[in-house]
């Protein structure tokens, strides 16, 4: 008698684990509005993290505390993070207009950050003596980049506030 009851408990536990496991990988198509906002906020906090990392890289690079290749690697890593954030946002299916607006603002903010990181890499390459031809497109200084980053971070923060993030 006892044995059978334990067996049922064990089966229940296995079933619950499997359910919990599969539930966490369901497709994002039918989401509660709250879930969609959380997903947007998650992607935005990744973008914010990438922007802050870039800010440190620019600051240390201009103080000569980072080498060109190192900075390049760090920026490349951040581009990958931003790519993930963008994918998370583009694949999201917003359940209502509010979260659709949140998503649009989020995508724009992630795009802003990506632009700055891309031009930071160009700046880094130009500093290292690379010949970029149309040098006009390359930001002239660390200060300009930091100002751009400030703007992009502001956009991320606003989008984050819209999505109800921290």
């Amino acid at each position: 008698m006892r044995v059978t009851r334990w067996r049922w408990v064990a089966r229940g536990a296995v079933a619950a684990t499997v359910l919990a496991g599969t539930a966490s990988c369901t497709v994002a198509s039918h989401q509660e509005p709250g879930q969609a906002s959380a997903a947007v906020a998650d992607a935005l906090s990744q973008a914010g993290s990438a922007a802050e990392t870039t800010r440190i890289v620019v600051a240390q690079l201009s103080r000569g505390r980072l080498t060109g290749p190192m900075a390049d690697t760090a920026l490349l890593d951040q581009l990958r993070v931003l790519d993930d954030a963008e994918t998370a946002l583009t694949t999201l299916v917003p359940p209502d207009t509010t979260s659709s607006d949140q998503r649009a603002a989020g995508l724009a903010a992630v795009g802003d950050v990506t632009d700055v990181v891309v031009s930071t890499r160009e700046w880094d390459a130009a500093r290292a003596g690379g010949d970029l031809g149309g040098a006009a497109a390359v930001p002239p200084s660390a200060d300009a980049l930091l100002a751009d980053l400030e703007k992009a971070t502001g956009a991320v923060d606003r989008a984050l506030a819209l999505a109800g993030g921290p």
């Binding site: 990744q46 914010g48 993290s49 802050e52 990392t53 440190i56 760090a74 890593d77 993070v81």
Partner: peptide, 9 residues
């Protein structure tokens, strides 16, 4: 800075 570590760099 609110940085989420995802890379060695």
């Amino acid at each position: 800075a609110g940085i989420e570590v995802s890379s060695l760099s």
